[in-house]
Design a binder for these strands. Structure first.
Lengths: 326, 326
DNA sequence: TTGTAAGCGTTATCAC
DNA sequence: GTGATAACGCTTACAA
């Protein structure tokens, strides 16, 4: 910075102002500084800047699972809103592992990012609350049971109810749920499923699965072994549905002729014609944007009341649901 | 840090040593410091640490397209190797946009990360070389034409040749290529395709497409409009192949009965039974690991000779290729 | 093994 | 618009 200052024939303070796009610099000086900086290949040191200014203009995003398209599509929304607020976005991979997620949080805290967005977090309420005490935080797409932390979700119970209602209206009565295990959204969908089944006078049957294709395959195999076959499956998400579909194809069980299948998230996978998965849509881009705006409000006012936004999911009809075989 | 020191009854320097897991601290003091840190909720400030130590122990990863599973799977390899070398990994989304990628590089440079991994970069040779001059860099999965920059790739021309050889051996003669446009790997695959076609005495036909499903659909529509129908399509990647498959299904053109289709990357999409895409595999995890080890060597020795690793792609036979209709 | 003191590259304040 | 000077929170010789 000293070098740039003397090269441009100005003070260091002026260089600092120019680098920060301050309006109180004459155009002439600004040009001189920018040229000097350029010719010397000067790059402001963000570390020093952040240290001195005690702000980072950076948001940390922790993505539970980069492999799941739902999350990467959500990140788009986050980035768009952050960009419009002139905030940088750093991404860390949670790797579907609570420990790694905790470590990622720790990293962001140590980096002193202005705030953290937890996408599809695996943390429980207590851990989430602890995180929010450490740094401004918002949870997106990670269920509904976290009273004290800002969150943007869709109503998972309602989404599940939409799925079940659709299946019931087609005439299904034996509908099983492939459960998302410890995933934050699993509880809402599971309970929504159970409630919806009961409200239709049907008996719920929850099969533990997980959140990706492999988990689904194992679950389907167990379902086969049980000998008790349903007429429809409500899967935790599209990945699970895709895995289930794979296994059903292996077994020669036709979808939707023999069995109906419904996913969740409406990722691009569900839209592939060959899968044409009936699913539940979540407005990801909007969720991402809202998460960021919620977070920036929280950053400005640490004490404000907890914000909990719950958007509406909607049913997307495609080709994997039909009336049960007669 | 001062607070922790006085709470633990030691000097600030000692606290620093403990926080960095230095071996030269007595167990007794270490415990005292850790307890004090814990009770005060102390978190070392990485910014200050990095500033003072002039190293960040952090690698920056710029992912061209989070939406493409190939890249997210590659990131796994990167993270694994980085973790084993005790390096943090920060991810920035390139968003399939050269400008954004350049901005991401700038951000990492300003953060003074120890090095940068460019995954599926869109930069041309000159831009890449400029980046490498700024900070230790390695390009992964972004083609072969960047002589002065460390790179880990697979042999795209060879991959294309494998695809064409397979199709030719099935009896195909009219094979078109859906081209990846400005994507770094596009050139190698395109030229490999052209060369392979010519070596079989066939006429190459390159159709501009892009790198995702939508690009593919447009390209297929143009192909239809041309009235000149091939018996096989070699797509730039699995996403393009999936998009092409969608469009072909729309048109009632059966794969592989009427037309054969082959993708590239062997992402999990290709493995979905409903798509069952014949494709070319790239060893992503290994590529990721090699990228990091190459980069760390470069960090240690800025002057060493350029490292260019080219791994072998391989054909993965699935269900979208068959002999041409007779 | 512990303590001291001089940086690290910025920002921020304030008088000029 | 400028220049001096004190933070910012840590590391790192070097001394003890």
């Amino acid at each position: 910075m000293d070098d740039v200052a003397s090269e441009a024939g100005v003070s260091r303070a002026l260089v600092s102002l120019v680098m920060r796009d301050s309006p109180k610099v004459s155009e002439r000086r600004r040009q001189a500084v920018l040229e000097a900086a350029d010719s010397l290949g000067y790059r402001p040191n963000i570390l020093a800047r952040n240290l001195a200014s005690r702000r980072t203009q950076t948001l940390g995003v922790i993505v539970n699972d980069l492999h799941n398209p739902f999350f990467s599509e959500l990140v788009e929304g986050i980035e768009r809103e952050a960009e419009s607020q002139n905030l940088r976005v750093l991404i860390l991979n949670g790797g579907r592992d609570v420990q790694r997620e905790q470590k990622a949080i720790e990293t962001f805290v140590q980096f002193r990012v202005d705030g953290v967005v937890l996408v599809g977090s695996l943390l429980d309420s207590r851990q989430l609350a602890a995180t929010a005490r450490l740094t401004p935080s918002v949870a997106v797409a990670s269920g509904w049971s976290h009273a004290d932390v800002d969150a943007v979700t869709t109503d998972d119970a309602r989404g599940a109810a939409l799925a079940i209602k659709h299946l019931v209206s087609l005439g299904h009565r034996k509908i099983v749920h492939l459960d998302g295990a410890q995933n934050g959204s699993a509880e809402g969908r599971r309970e929504g499923y159970i409630l919806a089944m009961e409200s239709h006078g049907l008996e719920p049957r929850v099969l533990p699965a997980g959140d990706d294709e492999d988990d689904a395959k194992v679950a389907i195999d167990r379902l086969v072994a049980s000998g008790d076959w349903p007429t429809a499956i409500f899967a935790f998400n599209d990945l699970v549905a895709a895995g289930a579909l794979d296994r059903l194809d292996d077994l020669g069980i036709e979808v939707p002729e023999h069995i109906s299948l419904i996913g969740y998230d409406n990722t691009f996978i569900a839209g592939l014609h060959r899968l044409s998965l009936t699913t539940i849509n979540q407005p990801r881009v909007r969720m991402g944007r809202l998460a960021v705006s919620t977070l920036t409000q929280r950053i400005e006012d640490a004490e404000g009341e907890t914000v909990q936004l719950r958007l509406e999911p909607e049913l997307v009809l495609r080709g994997t649901t039909a009336p049960p075989p007669s």
